[in-house]
Design a protein around this nucleic acid. Structure first.
Lengths: 136, 136
DNA sequence: GTTCCTGCAAAAGCTTTGCAGAAGA
DNA sequence: TCTTCTGCAAAGCTTTTGCAGGAAC
């Protein structure tokens, strides 16, 4: 989703687009690398030294509730946030820990064993080594 | 993997199969519902009242290091443990929070965008509502 | 004035670490 | 004896909650 569209979505839902919130959204828009709360906090704090982590948590919670941001838990008990709501899979490099997105048609995944289940949400993640780390 | 085979694997690797460790393995073998540390601890404590959570953590850590047990992080920052090394997908019911396994051919998942990546590990998880909760 | 936003501090929850005693080889 | 296992207590982290001051409408 584009940043401009996100802003409109927020306004439609009567969510105040405060300076802090805008900065967090902007950050998520520019850093589509699934940052953790700590990464978001540390980086934005460089611009807004008075920023508190609570505000980051509050804002992200709000955005997740409104379905504008998505939580991903690949592993390591680190919660990551993802603004990209287009469907994609995640690949985590075990060497450099970077998370890459890749295209995937999620509805093409067979789910034979789930005939009587109602499926809302499909996640795919792979682990391995990225091209950059393979070259080294 | 079968319990007997697991025991053999441990012996092959010179890992002491202490009473506590055996109970934990037995528990994982019988409860293939991806329990959390707390579930494992609480249930086994009924049989072994002196059991400490540290031992559960220690044992699980060892088993994971030896690749006999697998960590899964579906969400909610709760680490779950899975003895089943056969390939399967996970389905989490958003109502009753139960995690179900379902059959899936992981190598059938297309990964067009990952041509130069080395992929070790593929995870698939779905979220939704299970048949039991749908009926209510 | 009322509501929402912010941020400090404290609390809560999960996991790891240090250490010492116990068990096993 | 030497190594490994166990478990208490403390520490470390991430996340949540309570609360009060401030901003926006």
């Amino acid at each position: 989703m584009k940043f401009e569209k996100l802003k409109k979505e927020l306004m439609n839902r009567n969510i105040n687009l405060s300076y802090h919130r805008m900065k967090i959204l902007e950050y998520l828009d520019k850093n589509r690398c699934h940052p953790t709360v700590d990464q978001i906090f540390t980086d934005i704090q460089k611009t807004i030294p008075t920023l508190s982590k609570t505000t980051v948590y509050n804002t992200l919670k709000k955005l997740v509730e409104e379905d504008l941001v998505r939580v991903i838990n690949i592993e390591d008990n680190e919660t990551r946030y993802d603004i990209n709501t287009e469907e994609h899979g995640h690949f985590k490099c075990e060497t450099c820990k970077t998370i890459f997105d890749f295209e995937i048609k999620l509805e093409s995944i067979p789910n034979d064993g789930l005939d009587n289940f109602k499926v809302f949400d499909r996640h795919v993640y792979f682990k391995g080594i990225c091209p950059g780390c393979l070259r080294v």
